[in-house]
């Protein structure tokens, strides 16, 4: 109640402005009017891709049989991702075939997500639907292709008409299986990533703009309610740590779901 009165008193222009969905559609910086418009989000994405290519080029440029300290760290990271995300669900044989794809997914999404907490950038490359949608569509294509490559047309039969149920259940089951496999899977992949990033960004922006407002508008007016800014600032810092965790987790979830979907379309059901 107290907060809302303070906020409403200040609603005349100098008041509190929270985050909005427009944060994710910043003004165009370069090439306006063409299909290649570059805004802050696109600039961040390009920067992340350049940094990732640079990182992997530097890390794999000079590999030795007796590794240096940095190489041990790099191999530990890559090995953890490979064993935990690719080989665990897929097994060794299929894992070798799809490890490049899934590890690319993981590191790309991780890099894009982490820009959400880096000061100065503060906007995740994945927080507009475009990039996650492209990645989800590629994953969709890859798991369907994996099924056809492994089982041929039997893949569609196994997916749409799962064996071992009485025939009249197919009236119910086939549309549901079609929906959940070919439509819900890619849509939720894209939406999960985007919505997590949007939510995290909103939370952080809300905390820090509130801190700014409390300290420099309310407290500067001599109103002691402005000391609430200490609390919002502390919450902002806590949510920042939480946000880093969520960003790593979402990259992990996207990659492991991609490999689980590939495994599900390849596995032989009896």
């Amino acid at each position: 109640m107290l907060i809302s009165t303070v906020l409403s008193v200040k609603a005349d222009g100098s008041g509190f402005t929270g985050p909005s969905i427009d944060d994710f559609f910043p003004p165009v910086l370069l090439f306006p009017g063409t299909p290649f418009e570059i805004n802050r989000l696109m600039a961040i994405r390009i920067l992340v891709v350049v940094l990732l290519v640079l990182f992997f080029w530097l890390a794999t440029r000079n590999l030795k049989l007796r590794p240096s300290r940095a190489q041990v760290g790099f191999e530990y990271l890559v090995g953890f991702v490979r064993n935990g995300i690719v080989y665990e669900p897929l097994g060794e044989r299929l894992g070798k075939r799809y490890e490049a794809f899934i590890m690319t997914l993981f590191f790309l999404i991780l890099g894009m997500n982490l820009t959400g907490v880096i000061p100065g950038l503060q906007l995740s490359g994945t927080s507009a639907i475009g990039l996650p949608a492209v990645l989800a569509i590629i994953t969709w294509g890859v798991f369907i292709h994996a099924g056809f490559r492994e089982k041929g047309w039997k893949y569609l039969k196994d997916t749409l008409f799962p064996p071992g149920v009485p025939w009249f259940l197919y009236i119910l089951l086939t549309p549901l299986e079609f929906l959940s496999t070919f439509i819900v899977r890619p849509v939720t992949l894209a939406l999960r990533l985007t919505m997590n990033m949007i939510g995290g960004h909103m939370l952080l922006v809300l905390c820090f703009t509130a801190t700014q407002f409390f300290f420099f508008t309310v407290l500067a007016d001599g109103n002691l309610i402005g000391l609430l800014g200490v609390g919002t600032f502390a919450f902002g810092l806590i949510f920042m740590v939480l946000e880093i965790f969520i960003e790593v987790l979402q990259a992990y979830v996207f990659a492991i779901l991609a490999s689980i979907y590939i495994q599900l379309s390849v596995v032989d059901e009896h």
């Binding site: 939720t188 999960r192 919505m195 979830v253 779901l257 689980i260 495994q263 599900l264």
Partner: peptide, 20 residues
């Protein structure tokens, strides 16, 4: 763990549909 992520993905799908 594999099965868990599959179950979580299916359950979570409902709340993403709610966002949409």
């Amino acid at each position: 763990t594999t099965l868990m992520f599959l179950g979580v993905a299916l359950t979570e799908a409902l709340c993403f549909i709610a966002i949409a």
